[in-house]
Design a protein around this nucleic acid. Structure first.
Length: 875
DNA sequence: GCACGCCTCCAGGAG
DNA sequence: GTCTCCTGGAGGCGTGCC
C-alpha cells in the first residue's frame, strides 16, 4: 500500500513539472489577416490554387491563384457571401433572447441545420450562428465561442473554413469566369476503367475514388519562383537580432527559376570598401550590383520580390524576411512599402507566397518518409550536401564582415542558389511533393511547409467532415466517450499505451535468411479493422462483441469509420497504383517520376496516420484507436510467428512488422503469405534475402550481408553519429572484411582479420597516433543550453566551454563536437591530442565491437590478447 | 570520504 | 509537437563500508 502511495505522489510531482515546461497556451488556430497587393481579374484561365487567406479590411476570404501560362499570381475575393460561423445546440429562439446574440450587431443571422453526429451515430439539430467577421466567432476574450455555453466548429481558422465549405482543393486548378471561381477538371491520361477495376473492392464509392484519383494523378505545373538570401553586418560571434535590426544589410542575393542571378552588395565607405576585391572567383553569369545607400538596396530587393509569385528562403521566417522588415522600418520605410507581413512565428508576403524551406525540411515526417533520412541535420549546408551534393562557400575561418564585396556577393549568392536548387533537383521534386501534399491534406502551400503531420491530417479530416455533413466533434466529445483505462500498460515508463513487439533475437550467425514483412502494417490495420475515432467503442450494443485482441475495445460492424476509409484509400492508391507504376519501365520517364512523387506524398501521409491518434494535440485524439492499432499489430505478428513455426519454419528475429526466417522454402513462404491474407487480412511480402545475418542478444541491433553483397547495419554503435570517426572507420573496415564472407568456412579467416584490425587500432589509440578530429564525438543539442536543468550531459559541458572560452553561442539544433579528456571534456575547437583520455576511447572501441563480436563468438579482451598486457609498458 | 548500485536523463536509432 | 521500443553513456543520489 505504501509503495502505491509513493508511486502516486511521484507521478503527481512529475505532472506538475511537466506543466511548468509547457509553453503558453495558444489558440489552436490563429486568425491571420493580410492585405494583399495583387491583381484581381474577372477572367483568368488555368490557375493553381496556392492558398486561401483572410483579408480583414474587405472581410472576405481570398484565393491566391497561380496562373500557369503567365506564371503570375492573382487574387480572387470571395463573392459567394460566405460568412464565418459556429454551431451551437441552443435552439434559435432561445439564442435570440441572449443579450450576447440579440445586442451583437456583428451577428449576421441564425439558421437551424442538422448534422450527422458520428460519435453517437445519429442526426443532431444545431443552430448555425453567422457573423460579420471571424473575431466575432473566436479569437477575442469576448468572442461568441467564449460566451456561449456550448459551441462546435468554432476553432477553425476562417480561411480554412471557407476552403472546406466550398470544397476547393489547394494545389489543383481553377479558372475565373465573370468574376466567379470555377474548377478546372483534372486531366488524366489513365484508362479510367482500369483504375475503376483496381479500386472496386474498397469501401469508398467509385465516384469519390475517381475524383481523388484524378486529383492525385494530374501533374503539377512549373512554379516560377525566386530564392533569396541576405547577409547582415555582424560583430564576431554574435548573431544579429532580427527584431532590433541594428546592423546594416550588406548583401541580398537572388536566384530565380527564370534564370535571374543577382547579388546586391552594400559598399561601406566607412570601412574602406572602395576596392571590391577579386572578380575571378565569381560565377560568370552572376550579376553583381553595388549600392552605397542601404535604403536603395532594400527598395530594389522589395521590388524584385514582388515580381515573383513564390519566394524561397532558408529560415526566412525567423531571420531573412523578419530582418528585412524591421530594418526597413528602421530606415524609415512605410509599412505599405514593405511586401512582408510578420506573424507570431512566420513571415508572409503581400505579393506572393513565402516558402521557408527550413520549416519544411525540419519536419520529421518529411525527413524520414520523403527523403529516407538522407540528411541528419537541419542546416542548409547539411541538407544541400546530402540531397544535391553542393555546399555553402567555405570561408576558411573568415568572418562575413571581413569579406571583400565580391567575396560577399559570392558567398551570399551561393546560399540563394542552393536554396533554390533544394526545390529544383530531381526535376523539381520538392515543388511537386509540396503540390501533392497540399492536395492530400487540403492545406495551402504556405501552411503546408510550416505545419506537421497532425495539422495535415486534421485539415483533411475537417474537409471530409464538411463534405459529408458530419459534425466536427470537439475534442471533449471524443474524450467523454472514449476515455477508458487502457488494457495493457506500456513497457516504457511515462508512455500512454503499449506499442509494438520486438522478438528477442537468437544470437549467432545465420546463413540464408529471408526477411518477410507486412506491407504498411499499421495503415492496413486501420483500414481492414475499421479503426477510427467514431468506430472504436461505438455506441451500438450489438458491436460490443467485436473485440480487438488483448484489449477491451470493440469496433463498429455497422458503419465504416472516416479515418479507416481515408487511410485505406490512400494506402491502396499507393500500393496498388502509384508505387508499381513508378517502377514500370514500360512507362515514360516523366510519368514514372510524377508517380514516384505521388507515392512518396501518400507514404508521408499514410505512415503518420496511426501516430496522431495517440497525440493529445491532435483534435481527433483517441487513445483507443492508437491502442487497438498497436494491439492488432502485436496479435498479427505473434500469430504469424506461431503459424510459421507450426509449419516448420525457424523464426530468428522480428520487430513490429517483420520476420527473419532461417532458410525457408518457397512453399512455406507462399503458404504463410496466403494464410496471413486469408486469416488476418494483411499483405505479407518477401522484403529481402540475406546471405547471412549476425545477431547479438540485443534487440534492434544486427548486421547482415544481402545476396548482392550489400551490407545492412541496424542500430549498431559503429554507425551512430555520436561514435567518434576513428571508431566508425575501424568499424567500417571490419564490415568490409565480413561482407566478403560467403560461407561458414570463410568465417574463420575473416575473424582473424578482424582481430588484427582491432589490435592495430588499439595501438594507434594508445600511442596517440591519431588526428584529433577523428576523436570528436558529435552530439546534437535538442534544446537550448539553459534548458538542461536536471543533469549536465557532456555535450552541454562542451557547449558551455565553447561559450566561456570562445564566446561562441550555441543553440538548439547545433551539433557539438567534443573529445573526452582526463578532466572531463573539451570542445574539438580547443582540444589538444595530449589531453585525450585514451582509456575512455578504448572503452568506446570495446562497446562498439562487443556488439558484433558477440555475434561472432569472439571475446574483445581475448582478441586484444597480449596487447592488453603490453599496455602496462606502453604508458 | 568513497565505492557501489540504482534510477533518471539524454541522445540516437528501428520500426 | 505522429507514436512506442531499445541501447548505451553519464549524471545524480542514497546506502553501506571503512
Amino acid at each position: 500500500m505504501l509503495s502505491q502511495d509513493l508511486k502516486l505522489e511521484d507521478t503527481a510531482s512529475e505532472v506538475e513539472e511537466e506543466e511548468e515546461e509547457k509553453p503558453e497556451e495558444r489558440e489552436p488556430e490563429e486568425e491571420l489577416s493580410v492585405h494583399l497587393k495583387l491583381d484581381t481579374p474577372s477572367e483568368l484561365d488555368e490557375s493553381v490554387l496556392l492558398t486561401v487567406v483572410y483579408d480583414g479590411e474587405r472581410k472576405r476570404a481570398v484565393c491566391l491563384l497561380y496562373n500557369v501560362k503567365t506564371e503570375k499570381l492573382f487574387a480572387w475575393y470571395d463573392n459567394t457571401g460566405h460568412k464565418p460561423y459556429l454551431l451551437t445546440d441552443i435552439p434559435a429562439d432561445k439564442l435570440k433572447q441572449l443579450p450576447d446574440i440579440a445586442n451583437n450587431r456583428a451577428v449576421q443571422g441564425l439558421e437551424t441545420i442538422t448534422k450527422f453526429h458520428a460519435l453517437d451515430d445519429k442526426m443532431v439539430r444545431f443552430t448555425k450562428v453567422m457573423a460579420d467577421d471571424p473575431l466575432t466567432i473566436g479569437g477575442r476574450k469576448n468572442s461568441l465561442r467564449e460566451r456561449l455555453p456550448s459551441s462546435w466548429e468554432a476553432r477553425i481558422r476562417y480561411a480554412n473554413c471557407f476552403m472546406y465549405d466550398t470544397k476547393i482543393i489547394p494545389g489543383t486548378k481553377y479558372r475565373l469566369s465573370n468574376g466567379n471561381l470555377l474548377q478546372v477538371s483534372p486531366q488524366s491520361q489513365e484508362n479510367m476503367s482500369e483504375v475503376a477495376k483496381v479500386f472496386s473492392q474498397g469501401s469508398t464509392d467509385s465516384q469519390t475514388v475517381m475524383s481523388w484519383f484524378r486529383t492525385l494523378s494530374e501533374p503539377a505545373p512549373n512554379f516560377r519562383r525566386l530564392a533569396l538570401d541576405i547577409e547582415v553586418e555582424t560583430e564576431e560571434n554574435r548573431l544579429p537580432n532580427a527584431e532590433e535590426a541594428n546592423q546594416r544589410v550588406i548583401a541580398v542575393s537572388f536566384y530565380g527559376s527564370d534564370g535571374v542571378k543577382r547579388a546586391l552588395v552594400l559598399i561601406r565607405e566607412d570601412r574602406g570598401d572602395s576596392d571590391p576585391g577579386d572578380v575571378k572567383e565569381l560565377p560568370p553569369d552572376l550579376q553583381v550590383e553595388f549600392y552605397t545607400d542601404e535604403s536603395n538596396l532594400l527598395r530594389d530587393t522589395f521590388a524584385l520580390m514582388s515580381a515573383y509569385p513564390i519566394i524561397l528562403t532558408f529560415n526566412g521566417d525567423n531571420f531573412d524576411l523578419k530582418y528585412l522588415y524591421h530594418r526597413a522600418l528602421k530606415l524609415g520605410f512605410q509599412r505599405n512599402q514593405i511586401p512582408i507581413t510578420l506573424g507570431h512565428r512566420d513571415a508572409r508576403l503581400t505579393t506572393g507566397v513565402h516558402l521557408d524551406l527550413f520549416q519544411f525540411f525540419k519536419n520529421r515526417a518529411v525527413q524520414i518518409y520523403a527523403f529516407d533520412m538522407k540528411y541528419k541535420e537541419f542546416n542548409l549546408d547539411s541538407i544541400t550536401s546530402a540531397l544535391i551534393g553542393k555546399n555553402k562557400v567555405d570561408l576558411n575561418g573568415k568572418f562575413i564582415d571581413s569579406l571583400s564585396p565580391y567575396e560577399l556577393a559570392h558567398y551570399c549568392f551561393r546560399d540563394a542558389q542552393i536554396t533554390y536548387e533544394l526545390t529544383s533537383f530531381s526535376d523539381n521534386l520538392v515543388m511537386k511533393l509540396i503540390a501533392l501534399m497540399m492536395r492530400t491534406s487540403r492545406t495551402g502551400m504556405d501552411d503546408l511547409v510550416r505545419t506537421g503531420v497532425s495539422t495535415w491530417i486534421k485539415n483533411l479530416m475537417y474537409a471530409i467532415h464538411r463534405e459529408r455533413n458530419y459534425l466536427i466533434p470537439n475534442p471533449e466529445d471524443i474524450a467523454k466517450r472514449k476515455h477508458v483505462s487502457s488494457s495493457a500498460p506500456a513497457l516504457i515508463k511515462g508512455k500512454k499505451y503499449k506499442g509494438a513487439i520486438v522478438i528477442n533475437p537468437k544470437a549467432g550467425v545465420y546463413f540464408d535468411v529471408t526477411v518477410l514483412d507486412f506491407a504498411s502494417l499499421y495503415p492496413s490495420i486501420l483500414k481492414e479493422y475499421n479503426l477510427s475515432y467514431e468506430t472504436v467503442r461505438c455506441p451500438h450494443p450489438e458491436c460490443q462483441s467485436n473485440i480487438i485482441p488483448e484489449t477491451n475495445h470493440w469496433v463498429c460492424k455497422k458503419r465504416k469509420g472516416v479515418a479507416s476509409e481515408l487511410v485505406g484509400l490512400f494506402r491502396d492508391f499507393r500500393v496498388l497504383w502509384f508505387k508499381p507504376k513508378s517502377k514500370d519501365n514500360m512507362l515514360s520517364k516523366e510519368y514514372r517520376s510524377w508517380y514516384d512523387v505521388a507515392q512518396r506524398a501518400l507514404k508521408v501521409f499514410v505512415n503518420a496516420s496511426y501516430g496522431v491518434f495517440g497525440a493529445e494535440t491532435f483534435p481527433f485524439y483517441c487513445l483507443p484507436v492508437a491502442e487497438s492499432t498497436a494491439a492488432m499489430a502485436r496479435y498479427i505478428i505473434t500469430s504469424t510467428i506461431k503459424k510459421a513455426e507450426e509449419t516448420g519454419m525457424k523464426v530468428l528475429y522480428g520487430d513490429t512488422d517483420s520476420l527473419f526466417v532461417l532458410n525457408p522454402n518457397e512453399k512455406q513462404i507462399h503458404d504463410l503469405v496466403d494464410w496471413a491474407k486469408d486469416k488476418l487480412k494483411v499483405d505479407l511480402d518477401v522484403d529481402k534475402r540475406f546471405r547471412y545475418v549476425a545477431f547479438s542478444e540485443r534487440k534492434k541491433n544486427y548486421f547482415g550481408v544481402k545476396e548482392g553483397g550489400a551490407v545492412e547495419i541496424k542500430g549498431l554503435l559503429g554507425k551512430k553519429r555520436n561514435t567518434p570517426p576513428i571508431i566508425q572507420k575501424t568499424f567500417q573496415r571490419t564490415l568490409e572484411e565480413l561482407s566478403s564472407v560467403k560461407s561458414p568456412e570463410e568465417f574463420e579467416n575473416a575473424k582473424k582479420k578482424v582481430r588484427k584490425i582491432l589490435k592495430d587500432e588499439y595501438t594507434v589509440i594508445k600511442a596517440r597516433k591519431f588526428d584529433i578530429k577523428d576523436m570528436a564525438i558529435s552530439v546534437m543539442l535538442n534544446k537550448n543550453p539553459d534548458r538542461y536543468t536536471k543533469t549536465t550531459p557532456q555535450h552541454i559541458k562542451a557547449a558551455r566551454l565553447l561559450e566561456a572560452k570562445m564566446g561562441r553561442k550555441v543553440l538548439a539544433g547545433d551539433l557539438i563536437h567534443y573529445v573526452k579528456t582526463y578532466d572531463g571534456v573539451q570542445p574539438i575547437e580547443l582540444a589538444k591530442p595530449e589531453d585525450v583520455d585514451v582509456e575512455k576511447y578504448i572503452e568506446l572501441l570495446r562497446s562498439t565491437f562487443d556488439q558484433i563480436l558477440d555475434a561472432l563468438g569472439v571475446d574483445f579482451d581475448e582478441a586484444m590478447g597480449e596487447k592488453t598486457l603490453e599496455s602496462f609498458f606502453v604508458n
